[in-house]
Design a binder for these strands. Structure first.
Length: 468
RNA sequence: GGUGGGUUGGCGGAGAGGUUACGCACCGGAUUGCAAAUCCGUGAAGACCGGUUCGAUUCCGGUACCCACCUCCA
């Protein structure tokens, strides 16, 4: 059995992963609030924890892993979106969930075992809140229900904060219904057209944190193996989840292992709308950057380090993948050296180290490369075609797939170019070559003669403007 | 202010107390009208100051700088 080690935020150490039940490993990751397209920062944890999911399935068996990622479909940002657009909330959340699936599928992320929606678990939330009130960990006040942080001595342990320090430096307004400034909302009243449900505390809606506690308990149990999310969720979201779940269930831990990925930056700066470097996964796909390339870039940096998204990395990833796809197209995969990749991933999801192994395979065995790429969730060459090119030459022409050949359009130019070259009229030959390259073609000389490399998506109409 | 993390060659980015990371770029060679592609090869590092050690970029302490969170953004 491969020994997996993971950096556990809860204990601040890298430790060996030992499943509670090797036949049913239970993982929960915090999913998106569905009010808009997923941005690139949302994609990082999705890809990172997809690698974890794949690794666990590889090691323990495909049916031995239960992976839950929620959709937060009740939230004030969604309400705001509904108010601005005049659309029903359900329309917005349905549409956004569809987008999310499209975009994450494009990145090669497997669908989790369960993708629960918060609004389908309101009953579980209210019973959990009732339980917390009954056990005196929470108190109702002015239509709200609040968690009483002073009742949970270990509050702040996950993020290494003390209540008193946080209050000293807090910039939050203290609501009048709170006993302690750090008390957080489990339930809050709804008015007007805000979404709401009947509850023992009146018509209202849940606070943000309770949904993850209720859904993870329902689907994974009171204690489960791994809870994952972005480092920005460590406080307060995960801290609050732990407080709720442990107090309600009376357990020593909520999850044995807590994993947090570091944040994403763009060209060295935090991604933000004001800096103009904010973009969604869909924006990148629409620019023609393939999903596999986005995935590759995300895998180039270890998940616990801040990662910088740059155009240079995109270029590098695309060139590398194109080369690997050319090597592995039509090749039968050889899994005999997979353990090298698995070992790298088992060492705290070291994806850069795994990529290094793939680079080594690329110069020794395309069959092993193909198998290794699958382990990282990179599509097979046959499943995608953006990397394909067509080679047009005067003697023989072939295409790496179903790409059109453009023989009649291109060959006359190659013949002309060859004539000029044989006549040593290099000035005109170079001019012609430059014009051809302006259409996206690459024109080169091989031992057998001139050759044009036609990229995927080439537009032959561009050739009409060039004089023969 | 509090808490956590980081600083590796031109760039990206890992591991390891002493043995080539790897990729991109660069340079040299093969090849080439030029170029591209491909193949082969060389060089290049660990913020600063101390400490531990036979030996540290790798462990410990300090300094500087950077980043994140504390503001229901992954």
């Amino acid at each position: 059995m491969v020994e997996i080690s993971l950096t556990n935020t809860r204990t601040r150490t890298k430790e060996r992963f030992e499943p509670i039940d090797p036949k049913n490993i239970r993982v929960y990751a915090c999913g998106p609030t569905v009010y808009d397209r997923a941005h690139l920062g949302n994609a990082r944890p999705v890809v990172v924890f997809d690698v974890l999911f794949r690794l666990l399935r590889h090691v323990y068996g495909e049916d031995a892993v239960t992976y839950v990622r929620n959709f937060t479909d009740v939230d004030d940002k969604i309400n705001a979106r509904a108010a601005v657009t005049g659309r029903p909330i359900r329309d917005i959340t349905e549409e956004t969930i569809g987008w999310y699936h499209d975009d994450m599928d494009a990145l090669g992320a497997l669908r989790p075992t369960h993708e629960p929606r918060a609004t389908d678990y309101i009953g579980q939330m209210t019973s959990m809140i009732e339980d917390l009130v009954a056990k005196d960990f929470a108190y109702p006040e002015q239509g709200h229900v609040l968690f009483d942080v002073r009742k949970f001595p270990e509050y702040g342990k996950l993020s290494g904060r003390s209540l008193d320090d946080m209050i000293a430096g807090a910039r939050v307004e203290v609501a009048p219904y709170k006993r302690d400034p750090m008390d957080f909302v489990l339930w809050k009243p709804s008015a007007g057209d805000q979404p709401g449900w009947d509850s023992p505390w009146g018509y209202g809606r849940p606070g943000w944190h309770i949904e993850c506690s209720a859904m993870s308990a329902e689907l994974l149990g009171d204690v489960f193996d791994i809870h994952a999310g972005g480092i920005d969720l460590q406080f307060p979201h995960h801290e609050n989840e732990i407080a709720q779940s442990r107090c309600a269930h009376g357990t020593e831990v909520m999850a044995k292992t807590w994993l947090h990925n570091e944040m994403l930056q763009v060209e060295g700066k935090k991604m933000s709308k004001s800096l103009g470097n904010f973009f969604t996964v869909r924006d990148l796909l629409n620019q023609g950057i393939p999903g596999e390339v986005i995935r590759f870039v995300l895998l180039m940096t270890h998940y616990r380090k801040p990662m910088d998204w740059t155009a240079e990395k995109v270029r590098e990833a695309e060139a590398t993948l194109q080369g690997w796809y050319n090597l592995t197209d039509g090749i039968e995969a050889d899994s005999s050296m997979d353990f090298l990749i698995v070992d790298a991933l088992a060492d705290d999801l070291n994806t850069p180290a795994a990529l290094e192994k793939l680079h080594r395979f690329s110069s020794s065995s395309a069959a092993r490369l193909k198998s290794g790429m699958r382990l990282l969730g990179l599509k097979d060459a046959e499943e995608t075609d953006w990397w394909r090119t067509t080679i047009v030459s005067l003697s023989s022409t072939f295409s790496t797939g179903d790409t059109p050949l453009y023989l009649s359009e291109i060959v006359p130019f190659l013949e002309k170019w060859q004539q000029l070259r044989l006549a040593k009229n290099y000035e005109e030959a170079d001019l012609l070559k430059k014009r051809l390259e302006g259409t996206g073609l690459s024109v080169i000389v091989q031992p057998a003669g001139p050759v044009a490399i036609v990229p995927h998506g080439f537009d032959p109409k561009l050739l009409e403007a060039i004089e023969l």
